[in-house]
Design a protein around this nucleic acid. Structure first.
Length: 319
DNA sequence: AAGACGAAAGTGGTTGA
DNA sequence: TCAACAACTTTCGTCTT
C-alpha cells in the first residue's frame, strides 16, 4: 500500500534537465531517456512483464510456469496430484487389463493418504473455521499452520486434543504478529477451554522454542477503539498514556487488556468522546472494577488532564 | 435512572518449598 | 503436592450527574 504509493511517485513524466516531456522508453536496455537532451533519466529498470505470449490452451499449458501460491495452510500445500478424473477417456482408450490396473492404482492412492495427512486435513479445516470467525488475516493462518506442522512432526500432539493444539498455535501466531486475540476470544470459537488453550500454548512455546514477548497493551488499542467507534485521536492519546505508564513501571505484572481498557477509557474522556466503563469493559473483556483500579493507579502516578470535576475528590461515608 | 466509585469476599493461576 | 500470593472478578451499597 505505502510501497505502491512510493512507486507511483517515482513515475517521471518530464526531463529534470531540460524539462522536455518527450521521453523515450528503451525496454531492451531498461532505460528511460530524454529525447530532447539525451539524459538517461532512469536505468537498470526491472522488466516485470512476461516475456512470452499464449494464443491457445496448448501454448498456455506449455508456457505458464506458475500456479497458485504454496500454502502451509493447506494440508498438501496445494500440490497434490490425484490419479483419477477423466474416467470416460480411460474407458474408451485403454484395453481391459490396463483399465483394471488403473482403477487399482486409484484405489491405492486414496488409501495411502496417511494418517498424518488426514490429521492435517482435519486440523487445517478447523483452523480455517477459527480464523474466519475471528477475522484473521491469511498470514496469521499461515503462521499457525506452520506451527502446527512443526508440532505434529515433533510428536507434540500426542496426548492432547488436536483442537487445543491448533487453538494454542493460533494464539501464539496472533501474538507473534502483534495482533493479539485474548484466550477468551479463541476459546469462544474453538470450544476449547481457556485453560487448555493456555496450556497448549505454553507447551508449544517451550517445545518449539518460540520467543514470544509478553503482550503489549498498545496492541489491543486499535481493535478495541474501533469496536467502540473511537477516533484516532483517542487511540493516540491512549497510547501516549501507556508510554508514560511504562516509564513509571505501572505496566509489568498487570493484565495487558486491563491496561488497554483503562487507558482507552481515560483517553475517551480526555478527548471528549466519552464511553462508559461498562462499554469499554465489554469490548476489552475485563470488568469495570479492573478499569477503575488501573485508572486509579494511572491517575495517582501520572499527571493527566482528565476532565470531570469529581476526579481526585475523596469521599468518606460508609462507616 | 444510569453511571461511577470503592470495599470485601471469591476465583483461577503461578511460584517456590 | 501444597500453601502463599497477586491479579482479577463478583457482588453490593453509596454517591454523582
Amino acid at each position: 500500500m505505502a510501497e505502491e504509493g512510493k512507486l507511483r511517485k517515482q513515475e517521471i513524466t518530464e526531463c529534470p534537465e531540460c524539462g522536455s516531456r518527450d521521453l523515450y522508453r528503451d525496454e531492451d536496455r531498461g532505460e528511460v531517456v530524454c529525447a530532447g537532451c539525451g539524459l538517461v533519466i532512469e536505468e537498470s529498470m526491472v522488466d516485470t512483464s512476461q516475456e512470452w505470449r499464449e494464443f491457445d490452451h496448448e501454448q498456455a499449458s506449455k508456457r505458464r510456469r506458475t500456479g497458485a501460491p504454496l500454502s502451509a495452510a493447506r494440508h498438501d500445500r496445494g500440490l497434490t496430484t490425484d490419479i483419477g478424473k477423466g474416467i470416460s477417456e480411460i474407458y474408451s482408450a485403454l484395453p481391459a487389463g490396463k483399465r483394471a490396473q488403473y482403477m487399482r492404482l486409484r484405489k491405492w492412492q486414496s488409501r495411502m493418504v496417511s494418517a498424518t495427512e488426514r490429521n492435517l486435513r482435519f486440523a487445517l479445516s478447523e483452523l480455517k473455521r477459527y480464523s474466519s470467525y475471528l477475522n484473521l488475516p491469511t498470514n496469521i493462518e499461515e503462521t499457525t499452520a506452520i506451527l502446527y506442522r512443526k508440532a505434529v512432526s515433533k510428536g507434540l500432539v500426542r496426548g492432547r486434543s488436536m483442537e487445543s493444539v491448533i487453538a494454542g498455535a493460533l494464539y501464539a501466531a496472533c501474538r507473534r504478529h502483534n495482533t493479539p486475540r485474548t484466550l477468551e476470544e479463541i476459546a469462544e470459537v474453538s470450544k476449547v477451554s481457556k485453560r487448555d488453550i493456555g496450556r497448549a500454548y505454553r507447551y508449544l512455546a517451550r517445545e518449539l522454542g518460540l520467543r514470544i514477548l509478553p503482550t503489549k497493551p498498545e496492541d489491543y488499542i486499535p481493535r478495541f477503539a474501533s469496536e467502540l467507534g473511537l477516533s484516532g485521536e483517542v487511540q493516540a492519546t491512549a497510547i501516549e498514556i501507556i508510554k508514560q505508564a511504562e516509564a513509571n513501571e505501572l505496566i509489568s505484572g498487570k493484565g495487558p487488556t486491563g491496561i488497554a481498557a483503562a487507558t482507552l477509557y481515560l483517553a475517551s474522556q480526555i478527548v471528549g468522546e466519552r464511553r462508559t466503563q461498562r462499554q469499554v469493559a465489554e469490548v476489552a473483556g475485563v470488568t469495570e472494577v479492573t478499569i477503575r483500579n488501573r485508572c486509579k493507579d494511572l491517575i495517582e502516578r501520572l499527571t493527566l488532564e482528565v476532565p470531570s470535576g469529581r476526579r481526585g475528590r475523596r469521599r468518606r461515608k460508609r462507616e
